[in-house]
């Protein structure tokens, strides 16, 4: 069984007072709570500190935890004899057991008050990373999670599960799927907890997402912007031809209807190609001559409005 250093998680010494524990938890919760923090690791950090606090704030659980002795995080240790007795197993029986699950079930197993009170099982939340292409195409994905399952002696073992999930039309980043009753088991007839799967869309190298619309940077050469022409651009459904009008400006958004993401109501967002005008880093001697001829012959004055003080 793996040891977890709950004092270290809260940044405390082992002899910390109850008030210190509460203070440390509050301070760190404000910093990392997933509902208020922008820290991408906030959720994980908060989970660790909530787990530590749940054990250390309860005098009975804290005493049992302190009894395990001082070890380093991640160290394998042999569960004390009274645990082995309670769960009717030897040290090896604890191999796939998470310390947090033991302490979460501690008050019932320890025979403390209100043993027969029905208690609902715990809810779990896991992230499912998907690509923008998967969101676009829909279809089935598999999500893995390790969830505790109780054996006949009430010992919670972590068991790997795979859930098959169908991505619905109109799926979006942050959308949640509820798998009813797939969370922790209820105790004394309490209902089982739920498993929530949160869709997390990986950032795409080409497209930016805004609602159901997609934005794509479209670099043009100066002569393409001036002369116009037909070019090919990528979309999630494959390349399409796009007509560039002569005199296209940087920053212009070219809208391609129905090339974005699908909506639940069957409608489809648009793809916007945002024009950027790129110039070559280096030019050949021939190009140099042509640009110089162009400079000498052009009457274009991009900064004419500076002289008059009017807007562009």
């Amino acid at each position: 069984m793996k040891f977890k250093d709950y004092y270290q998680a809260l940044g405390l010494e082992r002899g910390a007072s109850e008030a210190d524990i509460k203070k440390a938890y509050r301070k760190l919760a404000h910093q990392y709570h997933p509902d208020v923090s922008k820290d991408p690791q906030g959720e994980e950090k908060f989970k660790a500190l909530a787990e530590a606090y749940a054990t250390l704030k309860d005098p009975e659980k804290r005493a049992a935890y302190d009894n395990l002795g001082q070890r380093s995080s991640g160290e394998q240790f042999t569960p004390p004899p009274d645990w082995q007795q309670r769960y009717k197993t030897d040290a090896a029986g604890f191999d796939d057991v998470d310390l947090a699950d033991i302490f979460a079930a501690f008050s019932q197993a320890g025979g403390r008050q209100r043993q027969d009170m029905p208690r609902p099982g715990q809810d779990y939340e896991i992230a499912a990373w998907v690509t923008l292409e998967q969101i676009f195409r829909g279809g089935e994905i598999e999500v893995g999670a390790e969830l505790p399952e109780y054996d006949q002696n009430g010992l919670p073992h972590r068991v790997a599960h795979v859930f098959k999930i169908t991505i619905p039309n109109g799926a979006a980043d942050g959308q949640r799927l509820r798998l009813a009753g797939q969370g922790g088991h209820g105790v004394n007839g309490g209902r089982a907890g739920d498993l929530y799967v949160v869709l997390a869309v990986q950032p795409h190298p080409l497209y930016r997402v805004s609602g159901r619309d997609l934005y794509l940077d479209l670099p043009l050469a100066p002569w393409e912007a001036v002369l116009g022409g037909n070019i090919e651009i990528p979309t999630l459904a494959g390349p399409v031809a796009l007509n560039i009008k002569p005199g296209t400006l940087a920053g212009q958004k070219l809208r391609l209807a129905k090339r974005g993401l699908g909506n639940r109501d069957g409608s489809t967002g648009a793809l916007y190609a945002v024009v950027r005008i790129d110039v070559p880093n280096q030019v050949s001697p021939r190009e140099q001559v042509l640009y110089e001829q162009l400079a000498a012959n052009s009457t274009f004055q991009p900064r004419a409005h500076f002289a008059t003080g009017a807007g562009a």
Partner: peptide, 26 residues
């Protein structure tokens, strides 16, 4: 490994639920 399918609900579905249901799952 343990593969399973279960009753799934995307939380933006149009189904409607009574107040008691919100209380139960929250």
């Amino acid at each position: 490994m343990n593969e399973q399918q279960s009753e799934t609900n995307w939380l933006d579905s149009d189904n409607l639920y009574p107040l008691e249901y919100l209380a139960e799952i929250s």
